[in-house]
Simulated assay, not measured.
Amino acid sequence: MICGSAWTSWEVKRFSTSEPFTQEMTGKDRQELEEQEFHRFADLTLGQLLNKLEDIVEDSDIPDADIEYGQGVLTLTLGSKGTFVLNKQSPNKQIWSSSPISGPARYDFMDGEWVYRRDGHNLHKRLAAELESVLEFEVDIEPEPHQAYGQDVT
């Protein structure tokens, strides 16, 4: 049986550790990205965002604020201020975003970051700017260096 504190440390450990990915891996385009690499980068990105957004939800004074993550879908509910949804789209090797401010966007993993091809904006920068406008305080959701935790991460 896993007690609460052991479970929490496992969750945190799951999205960080060991050796960094090489530039060769992070410099690939969506079409070149192997499926396992896509899942690795997407899972690590969503996991890191989950950890950071949990802290933001706790720091906010917004009633009904909540964050959920399951089956590749990260949902950040900010009560009357709206709901942000990020989810993995495996067939397209993309992360899709739905924002109450800017609407939908599809991000490709390019040169080590998630980028919207239509205008070149970065997922983390756009999300941070929108959250700051809604929450009215500064947020730090910049990604940690992508870390590997073995060959099989799925």
Rank of each mutant, 00 (worst) to 15 (best):
V85E: 04
V57K: 05
L53R: 03
E34V: 10
G70D: 07
N51F: 03
G82V: 04
F41C: 08
L50D: 03
D59S: 13
S60M: 03
M25G: 03
T77M: 05
T22D: 04
G82F: 05
V73W: 04
E54Q: 13
Q71M: 05
G47T: 02
S80H: 15
R30Q: 14
L44Y: 08
E54R: 09
S60N: 02
Q48V: 00
K28C: 14
F15V: 07
Q48G: 14
I62E: 02
F38L: 05
L78D: 00
T77G: 07
A65G: 02
L78F: 01
V57I: 11
S80Y: 10
I62D: 00
R14P: 04
D66K: 01
G79A: 06
D55P: 00
F38S: 08
S9L: 13
L44K: 10
S16F: 04
K28N: 09
F84I: 04
E24K: 12
Q36K: 12
D59C: 10
L78T: 03
L78K: 01
Q36A: 11
T17E: 15
L33H: 09
F15P: 02
F38Y: 15
S80P: 09
G79K: 05
P20M: 10
T22Y: 02
T75P: 02
F21K: 11
I56G: 01
G70R: 12
M25C: 09
E11Y: 09
V57L: 04
K81H: 13
D43L: 12
E37T: 07
R40W: 09
E58I: 11
T45I: 06
S16P: 00
V73C: 06
V73P: 03
